[in-house]
Amino acid sequence: MSWFKRIKEGITTSTKEKKETPEGLWYKCPSCKSIVASSDHEESKYVCPNCGFHERIGSEEYFAILFDNNQFKEFNENITSGDPLDFVDTKKYKDRLRDTMSKTHLKDAIRTAHGQVYGHDLVIACMDFEFIGGSMGSVMGEKIARAIDYCLQHKLPLMIISKSGGARMMEAAFSLMQMAKTSAKLTQMSEAKLPYISLLTDPTTGGVTASFAMLGDLNIAEPGALIGFAGPRVVKETIGKDLPKGFQTAEFVLEHGFLDKIIDRRNLKDSLAKLLVMLKS
């Protein structure tokens, strides 16, 4: 019965011949549970090749996907929050910022850059959800405002990629006023007849939805993205019932008339270039 019994005891493969499995070589889709090689996953723009699930990605990945040769000029990369209120909850806001910065190697929840998409100039402001939930504070407002000034100065189109839980509570009324600030600045883009494309990705809620994210000349979303004003938990508590299936998904928001289009991330760059050509005066 040596089928079931080892004939030779112990591990006989020498250390030299041992095959290492590097960390992160495989990606398991949280939606359909299928497993693909990480390199293939990256190749398909972090979209599951099996079910089309769009993994959350940050500014680094979006810039790489959209800008030609991953080349771009980033602006104001070192501005950080001023903590105007000296805010303390369970932790000092200053400490929270410092810890998040060292953990994420980001300065705040948004990065702004100028690059080219198939040769067409575009300024992109892209959020990073891993920085305090992509929350909007003074830095986000200021970076968007300065990106708009840059667009006005150089006559360039703007795209904002939203991925945010909403306003940053630790900046209280300052964060609220960023909604006013960004919306007011966008009127200048319109006045100058410069296109503004809003890309809503998973998730886009709260103060971001209730300001610039919904104000695009074109509002575009990624498939399946959560988009809403009040978060689903709050809505559920309000109505005291379970939410209907698909509530507040990009598809739901499109059906209700608030999006122009849903674009698969794998086609995003191509579609974007086409739209930029069509909008060009």
């Binding site: 104000l215 009040a230 608030f258």
Partner: peptide, 20 residues
């Protein structure tokens, strides 16, 4: 109002439009 119909009819868009 954070209700179901409010979301369907675009609460976020309505507020954003007013700011603008």
């Amino acid at each position: 109002y954070p209700g179901l119909e409010a979301e369907e009819r675009g609460q976020g868009e309505a507020i954003a439009r007013n700011l603008y």
